[in-house]
Deep mutational scan, measured.
Amino acid sequence: ELSWTAEAEKMLGKVPFFVRKKVRKNTDNYAREIGEPVVTADVFRKAKEHLG
C-alpha cells in the first residue's frame, strides 16, 4: 500500500464505507501504473476518472 496525503485520505473518507477498501486498492494500483510514489488528491481524481 502506498502513502496517501491527508487531502487524498479526506477524499477517500467521502467514499461509501462498503467500497472504500476496493477504491483504496484500485487507486494504489493506478498510482503505481502511472509511476506515482504517493497518492495525492490529484492522483485520486485521475484514478476516479480513469477507473470510472
Rank of each mutant, 00 (worst) to 15 (best):
N29H: 11
F18Q: 12
L12S: 01
F17W: 15
A6N: 09
E33Y: 13
L2K: 05
L2H: 05
F17D: 09
E7I: 05
G52K: 12
P37N: 15
A8F: 00
D42W: 09
E9S: 07
E36I: 08
R32M: 08
G52C: 11
A31G: 03
A41H: 04
A8R: 00
V19L: 15
V38G: 03
T27M: 08
K25I: 14
V39D: 00
A31K: 01
A6M: 11
N26W: 15
T40Q: 02
Y30F: 09
V43P: 00
P16E: 05
A8D: 00
K25E: 14
G35E: 05
A8V: 02
A6F: 10
G13N: 14
H50Y: 13
T40H: 03
W4D: 00
V23I: 09
G13F: 13
S3F: 14
K10R: 14
P37G: 09
K48W: 14
K48D: 06
P16W: 08
P37Y: 13
W4C: 01
K46Y: 06
G35I: 02
V38M: 11
H50F: 11
K25Q: 15
Y30D: 00
K46L: 09
K14N: 11
Y30L: 03
D28S: 07
F17L: 12
W4I: 00
V15T: 06
E33K: 10
E9Y: 08
K21H: 15
A8W: 01
F44L: 05
K10A: 14
V43T: 05
L51P: 06
D28P: 00
S3I: 15
K48G: 09
Y30Q: 01
G13T: 11
V19G: 09
M11T: 02
A41M: 06
G52F: 09
R24A: 05
N26I: 15
R20A: 04
K10L: 13
G52L: 15
H50A: 14
T5K: 02
V39I: 08
V38E: 07
P16H: 08
A8Y: 01
M11V: 04
P37I: 13
K46F: 05
K10I: 13
T5D: 07
H50T: 08
F17E: 11
V15S: 04
G35T: 03
E1M: 11
V15H: 07
K22H: 14
R20M: 04
K14Y: 09
G13E: 15
K46P: 02
